[in-house]
Design a binder for these strands. Structure first.
Lengths: 338, 338
DNA sequence: GACTGGCACTCGAGCGGGATGAGTGCCAGA
DNA sequence: TCTGGCACTCATCCCGCTCGAGTGCCAGTC
């Protein structure tokens, strides 16, 4: 495609993101140094409309980018806005004050939403990609047991196990030791395998209790609450105004369905690469007027989970991408230190 | 105040809550069996307006209740809508499926928002009113320690302690035992007292590590994240429409400031009694067009924390109060079982 | 062939005015 | 004390109008 047509598209996106109003040929030549007259721009715009990159809401209005237009813009035309040094420092300082994993996640979501002025989405480190740091059994009276699984990311899963009859402290101690020997440092995905045959070390009358506990561990590791998401900055949705306002209800609903969000994260193709999904590219129906920017974060080379932001398709992609990238990098670092 | 005037106010509130439109004298006599003509009602309405219980948005419109009107309605005129037996069963079943405290809180917030169609607010059991069930120290390598505090409500606090140099397993075992002997079963408020002099049992070269750990415990118990709140059902805010829509942004912002919410909860006078704050009765400026219904929940006789809902002043108070009460009771029960 | 200035055309936004009707306040009478 | 009747107010709706931003096209120029 010709150079100038691309420049025109870029200018349209820039202006529209800033003003939130359809942009006409005259305004374009006024605000940008395109070196040609508005009539020429009109021809280019006509062509761009023909090809589906922009569209006119009605005859006598300017043009706005289509999802396809934004896509081209994101792929080819924008330059990522890097964070300034003071900004980076502020991010790091703020996150570094967190006292535990919950705090890190909460601070991250606040940070992201404030930096981008969009809704922020933060996924807890995936158990599936973490290792077991420790497993603890606490007797909580009346034959109940509290089972606590600690991951190397600081994530904690807890379950109550009802053993039906009380057990001795020695037995608990023995079981705790064996469990930790078998599991410490292992990936969570390996846990089921490592637990095979563990019951054989115990007396037959202790087997039911052991099996009950193992079943609960497996349940915690495999079945339930494998993933967890925090959402923040929803008040930014109210700011968008106009047409988007009508859709803010459904969007809020979608955001409350964490299953939906996890699907959103799951769709991000490469685990580590930054992904931008624009409008209808989101399979979630309620979010087809929104764009989502996600990126994996992790300590070291592997992605532990995903964070991202969600906003109207007319968002500041350059700034958002920069912010999401930067925050992801620091979150990864912080988690490594904990 | 005369019987009939009260009946008129009640009818106005009922109608307005249902239709969301100013209600006129004619509509009132049509929809309610008041036994008198519209002209008589008009006189009563005029008097009610004089006294500040209702007001007219403009000359040729009907009347809407003022905050003062709602207050009178809530205090004197409504009858609490009790949950039906199947509803109660459903609540119990749903909450009973929760696997841990986080799950209980998340389910509660979902339940409350769905039952009331309002924003739901759920506070985690207050550490200040819980006891220590167990305290655990886990060595996490490179001289760092993971400190885990478990409350009898299932609430878990974790902290990382950097000991600067590594410590022996024996020392850890010893310290863990002493900590649990000193703290198990104690109220969190008593923890600082119980830790006094604990360091004296250790060798001088171990004292810095012990003091470091004790300081972290105190920090966790006293200073930080004493309280925690979950918010859900914000999509219900989008449903209210009209004037409230303009204020949904500020409300969402207020909801994200958990400090604000805790203040809201704190204002509820009696810890166990149900409290309704209507419109300007909320000290939080952004919420002066909203009403908040809160009630304490707890296992047994003492309130552990507060749950509640938030919605427009024109909410279904009878239904909301019933739902909040019922859910609070079941949450208390569930927590007792865990 | 590419670009430009000019011009006719379209159509949404904004404005003013009249009709409509819900709702009120007041008053005389039962 | 209540009621029916009546004049009055005022927001809402609808209509037609103007205005102007923006377009598409065309003939002319470099």
């Amino acid at each position: 495609m010709e150079e100038r047509k691309l420049a025109v598209l870029r200018a349209i996106v820039d202006d529209y993101v800033q003003t939130h109003e359809p942009v006409g040929s005259k305004a374009l030549v006024d605000r940008h140094s395109l070196g040609v007259s508005s009539a020429t721009i009109r021809n280019d715009m006509s062509a761009l409309e023909e090809e589906g990159y922009i569209s006119a809401p009605h005859t006598s209005a300017g043009r706005i980018p289509t999802d396809k237009g934004y896509r081209l813009f994101v792929d080819k035309l924008h330059s990522i806005k890097p964070m300034s040094a003071p900004e980076r420092k502020a991010i790091h300082t703020f996150l570094d004050q967190a006292v535990d994993l919950d705090d890190v996640m909460n601070r991250t979501v606040r940070l992201l939403s404030q930096l981008t002025k969009q809704v922020a989405l933060v996924q807890y480190p995936s158990l599936g990609r973490s290792s077991v740091r420790h497993i603890e059994l606490v007797n909580s009276g009346n034959s109940k047991l509290l089972l606590i699984l600690i991951a190397d990311t600081g994530r904690i899963e807890q379950r109550t196990v009802d053993l039906l009859h009380s057990v001795s402290a020695d037995f608990l101690h023995d079981l705790r030791t064996r469990l930790n020997v078998a599991l410490d440092g292992q990936l969570f995905t390996e846990v089921p395998e490592r637990l095979i045959g563990l019951g054989d070390n115990f007396q037959p009358d202790q087997r039911p209790a052991v099996n009950n506990i193992i079943a609960t561990i497996l349940d915690a590791v495999v079945t339930h609450s494998e993933e967890r998401v925090v959402v923040g900055g929803t008040s930014n949705l109210a700011r968008v105004g106009e047409d988007f306002t009508a859709t803010v209800g459904p969007v809020l609903e979608a955001l409350e369905e964490h299953v939906v969000l996890l699907r959103l994260f799951g769709e991000a193709a490469a685990p580590d690469a930054l992904t931008v999904r624009i409008g209808h590219e989101n399979s979630v129906e309620e979010l087809q007027r929104a764009s989502v920017v996600t990126v994996g974060y992790g300590s070291g080379d592997q992605a532990l989970a995903t964070i991202g932001i969600l906003g109207p398709t007319r968002m500041d992609y350059a700034g958002s991408i920069g912010a999401v990238r930067a925050v992801a990098r620091y979150v990864g670092q912080i988690l490594q230190d904990k």
